[in-house]
Amino acid sequence: MNTLTHLNAKGEARMVDVSEKQTTQRTATATASVEMHASTLDMIIQGGHPKGDVLATARIAGIMAAKRTPELIPLCHPLMLSKVEVDLEADAQLPGVRIRATCKLAGQTGVEMEALTAASVAALTVYDMCKAVDKRMVISNTYVEEKTGGKSGDWSFDNLATDPSQQPQASQSSQPTTSANALNLHFFAELREQLGVDNLQVALDALPNPTLQELVNYLQSQDSKWDTALKSPNLLMAVNQQMAKPTQKLKAGDEVAFFPPVTGG
C-alpha cells in the first residue's frame, strides 16, 4: 500500500505495467496558487499587462502542458486525455491567482500527474507573464485536490477516510490539514520502513480514554501490517521526547514516537 510502485525489487526505476488494470473513467483535479503583490493582481484584472492577457495565456499553457506530461515525468504513461480544463481565478485575499486543473480520461492509469503538470505550468506562465513587474511572486500549494476512478477508488485531499494508504482519522503530517485535537506520531528506523510512514496524525477522538497502550491498540487494529509491526516486545515509545510506559496518559498536541531498540555509538 505505502510502497513506491515506480521502483522494482532492486530499487531501480521502472514504468509500472498497467496492461492488466481495468479501463475506468478517471478524473483528477490539482491546484496551485501564485501569490503576488496586490498591484500586480490589479494589473492582471484590469488587463493592463505589457505581455497581454495573463489568465488566458496561462490557461492555454496549462492545457498544452497536460498533454506533454509523459515527456516531462520519466515514468509517466502517455495518455489519451479526453478533457483538460484549467481555471484561473484572481483572489484579492491571497492576493494572487488560484489555479485549478482537471484532467479526464477513460484509461488504465490515473491522471493526477497531468493535472499537477497543468496547474504547475499555468503557475509558471503567470510568473513569466508578470515577472517584469513583480519578481517576488511565490508559487505554492501545488497539490492533488481529488481523484476519481481506478483501483483505489475515489480520493480527496480533505477527506482522509477515502485514503486507503492512511488510517481513519489519521493524516500524514506533511499535509497542511492539521488538527489541534490530535496526536503527532513519529516512527523511526526499521519500524518506519516496515510501516512505510515516518509521521502521522491521529485524532484524539479516536481514543475514548487516551493512553499510550490504547493508541497502540488503535493502530494495531488498522491492519495486519500495523498489528505485526507494533507487536514487537522490543518496541520503544516516547511521549514528548521522553521514554514512556504504556500506561502514560496522552493529551492533544502530544508528540508520540515509536522506535526499535537504539543502536548508536
Partner: peptide, 8 residues
C-alpha cells in the same frame, strides 16, 4: 549513549 540515546 549506546542504550538510551535514540540513534539507529
Amino acid at each position: 549513549l549506546k542504550t538510551r540515546a535514540p540513534f539507529w
